[in-house]
Nucleic acid binder design. Structure first.
Lengths: 125, 125
DNA sequence: ATCGGTGTATTAAGCGATTAATACATATTT
DNA sequence: AAATATGTATTAATCGCTTAATACACCGAT
């Protein structure tokens, strides 16, 4: 558990993003327990309410499930998990294509650039 | 001149983005005059200071040049114009590759998705 | 039953950034 | 020279959102 916070985006957004990526990668598996609000807050040195805010977002999106007096768990609904990954991808693709199109970058050019960047890429995982 | 404002990003940012795209596409050519602050404000129904803010950003980036009592003009510096387009592209590519990598999307998959989206794409130009 | 842990709700505080109001100096035009 | 239009600077108001403070209800273990 180690999040590199920037001071650009809200903390709770960054926390959500972190968990989404972890889930999408499969590092967090279906049904797996995640830390309590207060514990997460301690680990990350953030306010418990901020942790709660993040968990609430994920709860509303169906990513995690919470039962009384049990640790919240990653949903076991495979559809949701599949959808999550898909949504992240679709969003990334949409933004990218929209951007390059708006400045008249050809498809070939775009593909080449992606390929180069991907292969060369400073891995940030 | 027609900008579709969202209420997500600051107005001046959206104005800058609009002009950048126009320039990157070549719709605004080197040396071409652009509206005065107040005129732009009238057309877009925004506060003159917001227009000024946008122009100031562009001025600082070297995209436009302003001489006393003359309309601001798109820079004639071809280098700047080339750099602009390059920067927009690099930024888009970086964000995209970073996103897909963070959720373990393979290069091939990414390329395919871009291709599909690009070709199918609802043109937003 | 008491204590410590949990999730949750409500409310307030704080902060940052955007937008707006206003004024000033200059230049061109009538 | 008066009027109008320009760019610019300074300051204030506004607004939204994030974060924090606090309290409540629940449960399990001691």
């Amino acid at each position: 558990m180690n999040i590199q916070f920037n001071n650009r985006d809200p903390v709770y957004v960054q926390v959500v993003r972190y968990f989404k990526n972890q889930i999408a990668k499969g590092f967090l598996e279906p049904g797996q327990a995640i830390p309590s609000r207060r514990e997460l807050a301690n680990q990350l040195k953030i306010n418990p309410n901020t942790a709660q805010r993040a968990y609430k977002e994920m709860e509303e999106e169906g990513l995690i499930k919470t039962e009384k007096n049990q640790p919240s768990r990653v949903t076991s609904d495979e559809n949701v998990l599949q959808d999550l990954r898909d949504e992240l991808i679709v969003q990334a693709v949409s933004e990218f294509v929209s951007s390059v199109k708006s400045i008249n970058v050809s498809l070939d050019e775009a593909l080449n650039l992606v390929k180069q960047k991907y292969e060369k890429g400073d891995s940030d995982d």
